[in-house]
Design a protein around this nucleic acid. Structure first.
Length: 789
DNA sequence: ATGCCTCGAGTTCA
DNA sequence: CTCGAGGCAT
């Protein structure tokens, strides 16, 4: 058959073309197995359109050309459902499901009945009527008795067959199912709508519902809708199979899309397993679902069970906890972090999302609030994204009360009234109060006491707030001066302040025990490691990893404390910015006093040791010079200066002439001399160079710098999911002891990923990058093998 | 300058 | 977990 020499008889050719296009549509949209190229499809469509235009007598409502272009209507007609469209009872717990199954078993007197199981699509229910195999009418569910006639709109949905395939279909067939919008299509639609200023859809469900209720089918045609069949209504003129699952198989053969996530199972156990399986896959499905449906598979059994009120006894919808909910913003508050970061958060009317009650949601920063335009009083959509943390997805602007104002970051700290400043180019705004700000003080003490820092058990945020507010504690060092009596007194005053009279008053011994435990926990924390101590100080940019690096490279607190900060850059991963932050911290007398007080009150760093021998190779005077931030002094110039003169000390004394003789350009020389002329700079330079020399001397003893190569040296490992034989921290510890680096995220430099139960995005990333994935057993085997050796 | 790769900091609820 | 930003290689 050729397009250029059409069959002489237009009616035959039209039928041919319709069959070809229908088949291509079915393969593409329903089977998801495209069989012909898009260009070929377009060509067939154009030929069919031309043919139908030339021969009006060939018009056919079931022709693929009839999907598009119907004229808009004024309103939808009514359609009475000859067989009522059902709504299902909902189950929210396992128990409700077992009850449902037990009732069926009792009424039908059978054990472990077979159920047809399927996902519950989050779209809208519709009914499609076929007469003599041709789609004649489509309707929404409406109230179950009467719906709206949306035939023209449903024609535009590519997965709705306009003509049935195969044979043996009843003269009248009503098929029921769900119209939905695939997630990818929804995202793509919104991306485009945002770019072009079109209508942004709230979520796929609303998108589908809104699209189907368009009076102009051309609008619907532009929307990416899809359809899945899940039931039949009226059947006339043929017998359908005796089981629901078989009916579905038959519908599939007639060209209807039926999800391959559906299946059959037995008993409550099978249903609950199915629920768990679909629940686990929920986020990865290409469409939204809000639960699963269990239907008694045997249709005779269904008839016997019948209905209670409007819902059938033979089916139930087992719902997932909602992932998105609407609620209102009662207030927008600003929290002050340890570093002074001012973070806006929405205080919400309590709402259940994903199984928990949410009352707070972070708004991250002022930019985010502006982007979303969240205002006090707004109705918002809240979601528990990916894992746990609630976020505000968007504002329902239609529900915005009158008189609201856009939110603005306050100009002053709500706690200490210091100015809130936002540096140019920074995203975060910060309270400038630093040590004056009680909020920052509380947060830094909280950080100090944290498990990964000094690990003071029982010292939580609320307690620290009270200690600070009532003047018992100003700095972490004050913790080590607290007595049992102090805690009891503090609690008494806090109760008095709040007007609460808890049991502690009548049972004084309980309060003493509580205070005893705290004092004991504080005492216990006195013995610590350098790495924990450094981390506990809460220096900006100095987290766990940097603390560990500082500890292992320098070995002692005193060495770090008295090193001019630019020297710190000899440690890998510590650059100018981090070194400067450490220097800034140590320059504050208050901070030095805190460190002294901690040591004076018995904090002992038990792992003080010599600097790492590996330091020698990195003690690079030129790099230190660069870190000082001398204007115009690049790495190259610094190297010239150090190499050309007799060591870096020359940098202290060389004059312009001598510098020029080293081949350093005049402008650089001038900049350097100008910088050095400043007494503070000169002093810094002198101390930095002296310290470098001293460290080098300390390492000069030959022979002791042979470092044992650890078995996992150079390997980067990422842990993900829940391990069963040990905690992630334990695993991290043991791997690190063997020389491995345990990183938090997967990249192509990762040696291998250890995946435990419920591994998530990191496992996916590993697969994507082709990084080796180990199971827990394999890691244990490795640890055992290397641990024994 | 540019683009990884990591680290740090902040975050919710039971 | 996710973002922003520092460190470093290119």
């Amino acid at each position: 058959m050729s397009a250029k020499q059409p069959t002489a008889n237009p009616a035959i050719r039209a039928a041919e073309l319709r069959a070809l296009v229908d088949d291509a549509n079915h393969r593409y949209h329903v089977l998801d197995e495209p069989a012909i190229a898009d260009a070929e499809y377009d060509r067939l469509m154009r030929e069919l359109e031309a043919l139908e235009a030339a021969h009006p007598e060939l018009a056919d409502p079931a022709s693929p050309t009839a999907r598009i272009g119907a004229a808009p209507s004024r309103e939808f007609g009514e359609v009475r459902h000859a067989i009522r469209m059902l709504s299902l009872a909902n189950a929210f717990s396992d128990e409700e499901v077992t009850d449902f199954v037990r009732r069926i078993e009792q009424q039908l007197d059978l054990a472990d009945p077979q159920f047809a199981v399927e996902p519950k699509f989050d779209g809208l229910a519709i009914s499609l009527r076929y007469e003599a195999g041709v789609f004649v009418q489509g309707a929404t569910r409406g109230d179950g008795e009467t719906g709206e006639d949306v035939t023209a709109n449903l024609r535009t949905v590519k997965t709705v067959p306009l003509r049935l395939r195969g044979d043996g279909w009843p003269h009248v067939l009503e098929v029921r199912g769900e119209i939905y919008m695939p997630r990818a299509a929804f995202e793509a639609w919104n991306t485009r709508a945002r770019a072009e200023g079109g209508k942004v859809l709230a979520n796929p469900r609303n998108g589908a519902a809104g699209s189907l209720r368009q009076l102009d089918p051309r609008v619907t045609a532009a929307r990416p809708l899809a359809f899945y069949a899940y039931a039949v209504g009226v059947v006339e003129g043929a017998e359908l199979p005796a089981r629901h699952s078989e009916v579905m198989r038959q519908l599939r053969a007639w060209g209807f899309p039926v999800t391959d996530l559906s299946g059959t199972t037995r008993g409550a156990r099978g249903c609950l397993d199915y629920y768990a399986r679909i629940g686990a896959a929920r986020d990865t499905l290409p469409f939204d679902i809000d639960g699963v449906v269990y239907k008694l598979d045997d249709l005779a059994g269904q008839r016997e069970l019948g209905f209670v009120g409007r819902t059938p006894r033979w089916a139930i919808a087992h719902k997932f906890p909602a992932q998105e909910q609407q609620t209102t913003v009662e207030a927008i508050v600003v929290n002050i972090g340890r570093t002074g970061a001012a973070t806006p958060a929405a205080v919400l009317a309590p709402v259940h999302v994903g199984g928990v009650t949410v009352t707070n949601a972070t708004l991250h920063n002022a930019d985010q609030v502006t982007r979303l335009d969240v205002r006090v009083g707004d109705t918002v959509i809240v979601r528990r994204a990916g894992d746990v943390i609630p976020e505000v997805v968007r504002v329902v602007t239609e529900s915005r009360p009158v008189g609201t104002q856009p939110w603005r970051m306050p100009t002053h700290c709500p706690i200490c009234a210091s100015e809130i400043v936002r540096e140019d180019g920074e995203v975060v705004a910060r309270c400038s109060g630093e040590l004056v700000c009680p909020a920052q003080r509380v947060q830094s003490i909280f950080h100090f006491a944290a498990r990964r820092a000094m690990d003071i058990e029982g010292l939580g945020e609320r307690l620290i707030e009270d200690l600070v507010a009532l003047g018992f504690v100003k700095s972490p060092a004050d913790l080590y001066a607290l007595s049992v009596d102090d805690f009891v007194e503090m609690r008494r005053r806090a109760d008095e302040r709040d007007g609460t009279t808890p049991e502690t008053v009548k049972a004084g011994k309980v309060a003493t025990k509580w205070a005893d435990n705290l004092v004991e926990a504080i005492d216990h924390s006195r013995e610590t490691t350098l790495e924990r101590f450094l981390y506990a100080l809460g220096i900006e940019h100095v987290g766990e990893s940097t603390s560990k690096a500082l500890a292992t490279w320098f070995g002692s607190l005193e060495r770090i404390r008295h090193l001019p900060w630019p020297v710190l850059t000899v440690v890998p991963d510590i650059g100018a910015e981090v070194a400067r932050a450490i220097g800034h911290f140590l320059e504050q007398e208050g901070n030095q006093a805190v460190i002294d007080a901690l040591l004076a009150r018995g904090v002992r760093i038990v792992d003080t040791r010599a600097p790492s021998p590996k330091l020698r190779a990195r003690l690079d005077s030129a790099a230190v010079l660069v870190a000082l931030g001398i204007p115009r002094l690049t790495e190259k110039r610094a190297a010239q200066l150090v190499a050309g003169a007799d060591g870096a000390s020359a940098a202290l004394t060389l004059d312009a002439e001598a510098l020029a003789a080293l081949g350093i350009p005049d402008v650089t020389v001038a900049a350097f001399l100008g910088w050095r002329a400043e007494p503070a700079h000169h002093d810094l330079l002198r101390r930095a160079l002296a310290a470098t020399a001293m460290l080098r001397d300390a390492l000069a003893t030959p022979g002791d710098d042979t470092v044992d190569e650890l078995p996992l040296e150079g390997q980067t490992v990422v842990l993900t999911g829940t391990l069963s034989s040990m905690t992630r921290d334990e695993a991290k510890d043991r791997l690190e002891k063997l020389g491995a680096k345990v990183a938090g995220s997967v990249s192509k430099k990762t040696s291998f990923v250890v995946a435990g139960e419920d591994a998530g995005s990191k496992l996916a990333k590993a697969k994507e990058l082709g990084v080796e994935v180990w199971d827990e057993a394999r890691m244990q085997a490795l640890l055992a093998a290397l641990g024994a050796a």
